[in-house]
Design a binder for these strands. Sequence first.
DNA 1: CGATCTGTTAGTAG
DNA 2: ACTACTAACAGATC
Length: 257
Amino acid sequence: MPELPDVEVSRSYLAHTVMHKKITDIRTTGGRVFRSPQKDIMKLKNRSFEDTSRHGKYCFLDTDSKTTLVLHFGMTGSVNYYRDNDDPRHAVLVVTFSDGHKFAFINIRKLGKVLVIEDKEKFIRKNSPGPDALTISKREFMKMMRAKKGKIKPALMDQKNIAGIGNIYADEILYHSGIDPGRKTGSLDEDSLNRIYEKIRSVLITAVECGADVEKMPENYLIKRRKKGSPCPLDKGMINKRTIGGRSSYYCPEHQQ
DNA sequence: CGATCTGTTAGTAG
DNA sequence: ACTACTAACAGATC
């Protein structure tokens, strides 16, 4: 569950579960997911989480000291708050609190990241420097896009441009904007760019409101029809698939040009 | 069995 | 400097 809506839903979940409780134990599987030395991860012990934030696909948990726990979900991350003895399958990090509750970061494919850092702003500048997709201004977006040479979909997915959009939501945004994912960004007029800007907001906000749950999303969302040959919910077209920027792209040739 | 998958990053080439 | 493409990572699923 790794794009902006999923990360935001997880952040909100953590904000309602793991705040203001003393951390009594930290367990990790180690391995490539951990991008800080183990001793830095262990600094969480005896601390408590006091605040949450998110930038693009990164989730941050600030502690009561100078440290922040950073989570990146990769392709298969999720979080779980519970209190039994059995930890979830594929948990790579388990944090235990003084009240007996636990919080696990689950990362099946181990393509995610876990770090403990001291300077969040510096971290963002280095790892996901684009403005967050939900806070970028229209002016910033326009300026950014007008400078782009390549295709629109890879431009939307590049975290150096805008933070938070991945393969699924890039398709969704372009689908509702009526723009072919392979269009050259430079060929898009003011109107099209405006439309994309608005759809970034509306699609991502809608997805967050649905708890990033595909089942709860509107019936006219492409995410429910990501299959070649599905009928397009917006017109008489048929969903097609082709590779753009090295990633599978689903779109309706009937209304996306 | 092989292909595919919501992400990132290093390497290469233009 | 920017863009484009590939492989690698690791496990599940079809």
